[in-house]
Amino acid sequence: MIVVTGASGQLGRLVIDSLLARMPAGQIVAAVRNPERLADLAQLGVQVRQADYNQPDSLLRAFAGADKVLLISSSEVGQRVAQHAAVIAAAQQAKVKLLAYTSLLHADRSPLGLATEHQQTEALLRDSGLPVVLLRNGWYTENYLASIPSALEHGVLLGSAGEGRIASAARADYAEAAAIVLTREQQAGLVYELAGDSAYTLAELAAELSRHAGRTIAYQDLPQAEFQSILLGAGLPEGLAALLADSDVGASQGALFDDSHQLSELLGRPTMSLAALVAAVF
């Protein structure tokens, strides 16, 4: 039996969908804070169980009988380590045979501020004694696709990534890779550095937008503080604005680049291209 935490989130739901193509629904547990959100999965035969990272007892119940658990990192930046520690403790009590964790690309040496909690979680996993596999996910292409409406409105794509090359991949690619790892044997101890097959600069992303829009969308590189201020002005929460600006600067330092092709090797096919994903938005 495989348990997927955060199952109603954007990544978790895609992992469940990919698992359903590989195994009986009754052997999949969707662990979620609000089970009513996954009524459609329950109708398919998936076991939907209530689980909250902030409620350790709920995690114990959700993991009952589990062979493998996918810990999808919490979205609550600043609270992740304590929440992940609760999941790890529950997995220990359940004596799971494999705990997979969605970490960050090159988390052990990443300059991103986002990496700190992943580094701390990986340390907890090392000390746990559990069989662990690390899925170090790179950037989601969707993170940049979300900027397309604003870029089209203003005729400019803003960022702080300089000439940094970004080897992002679609969220669905990372989800499928997780499902593949969860349904394979002898994964304990492995570390996957997962990223897209090809990389691009934000100037190249702007050029791709221009081709589809039929007019020039320029890329304007900004200092981190200015970019963060613009994101705040656009209505983003302070923490998210700071995270995105810091991540762009990290991209300028190579933090979002990887050319090992481990993701496509897992998938057995090329990762979805930037051009195809941009075309789908248009």
Rank of each mutant, 00 (worst) to 15 (best):
A107G: 12
A255E: 03
A30Y: 05
Q79Y: 06
D221Y: 10
A179C: 02
G9K: 07
D259K: 04
Y53V: 00
A146Q: 14
K97G: 14
M272W: 05
S247C: 11
S264M: 09
E238Y: 09
A279Y: 04
A207C: 07
L182Y: 03
S103Q: 04
A167D: 13
D40R: 13
A85P: 02
V48A: 03
L240T: 09
A206L: 11
E176H: 05
T183L: 10
A107I: 02
I72F: 00
A86E: 06
R49V: 05
A225P: 00
Q187R: 09
D67Y: 03
E117D: 13
V29R: 09
A206P: 04
G113N: 12
S128N: 08
S8Q: 04
I2H: 05
A245H: 01
V29L: 06
A25M: 11
A7S: 14
E193N: 15
D127I: 07
G164D: 03
L145K: 06
R165Q: 14
L158M: 12
L274A: 03
V15K: 00
V133D: 02
L112M: 15
I2Y: 00
G214C: 10
L256N: 12
L134Q: 14
A280V: 00
V77E: 15
G268H: 07
L44Y: 00
S128R: 12
P24W: 07
V4M: 08
G155S: 03
N143D: 11
A90Q: 05
Y101P: 06
A179V: 05
Y192F: 14
V133S: 11
H106C: 00
I2F: 08
V15D: 06
R37N: 12
A64F: 01
Q47K: 13
L59G: 04
D17V: 09
S210V: 07
A245P: 08
V132L: 00
L125E: 12
S150V: 15
M23T: 11
A213V: 10
A91V: 01
A39N: 06
T271L: 09
Q92A: 12
L232D: 04
G235Q: 01
P270L: 14
A206Q: 04
G65N: 06
I2A: 03
P131E: 13
A42M: 03
E153I: 02
A94H: 00
L274W: 15
M23L: 15
A280T: 07
